[in-house]
Amino acid sequence: MSVTIEEVEAAAQKHPVAPYLRMDRMPHIWCPTCGIGTVMKCYAQALEEADVDMDKAAIVSGIGCTGRVAGYMNLDAFHSTHGRAIPFATGVKLGRPELLVTVFSGDGDLSGIGGNHFIHAARRNMDLLVILVNNFIYGMTGGQNAPTTPLTAKSSTMPFGNFEEPFNLPHLAASCGAVYVARWTCLHTRRLTKSFQEAIDRRGFRFIEVIAPCSTLYARLNRLGSGFDLMRFYHDSAEIKHGADPKEVGIDFQDKIICGKFIDEDRPAMHERMDAHYKKVLGDKYVPMPPEGGWLHE
């Protein structure tokens, strides 16, 4: 049996993901064979499977293709400035500590212009779930070189091939103190969903890198076919190695992609540590910020 639906609006509301998305904003802006939509679907699925109270979840994005995710999720959603998603989310989390705050943004946004915020949020173990979609390039602005562009890969500002060392993001996150570090490609929908779900249940700075195809720029500039071909490439080249040393998981151009969960530790998040510390040193004088936020009413 199959059903091909003509009534788009009505059908969209029946889609199992509908409660988690702003279906009135579909279709989204992403190109055909772009992987971001798949990552977003996995995140929505994880929210469902982790039984998250959607009213107590906020999502913050920066700027760029992945920066648009916040605008499509049916949560309290913030589309902030370029690179500032993590500090913005830090404010949201500390302003109302009961919220589950997710940062969902791209490689250029979080590790390029926002790199300083990234390392410091990891260092202080800010209670944020950070989902970084890595397509190896600045997509929205036209395919410029990113801090993640592999060596020798072409971009519109490295037309003769990239000669700068890229970031190994799981290594960066782990060495700065992230308590949960994983990498998947957007082909690993089940494992990715499970990883999101697992990270939702953890506390502290949780970092998940998701490799996703950019057909319009990365694939085209490097003559790799379409996003579809990249998905096939992930199929052939992704290697799952749980517990791999993050130092060893750097990505070379069109070489193997080590996936898996690399770090999973339990350490108190920044605000938990703050509470415990003040309780210890200030005793009864300490008045913690209420879970629902700072003083608002008489």
Binding site: F78, P87, F88, A89, G91, H120, V287, M289, P290
Partner: peptide, 28 residues
């Protein structure tokens, strides 16, 4: 700490400003 407030020293002023915009959206 004695009145239910939270101070955070951010990594720079870009972050400080972004954090207060974010926190204000919680009503604080």
């Amino acid at each position: 700490p004695m009145m239910g407030g939270t101070f955070i020293q951010m990594e720079d002023e870009l972050a400080s400003m972004a954090a207060v915009v974010g926190a204000s959206w919680t009503g604080t």
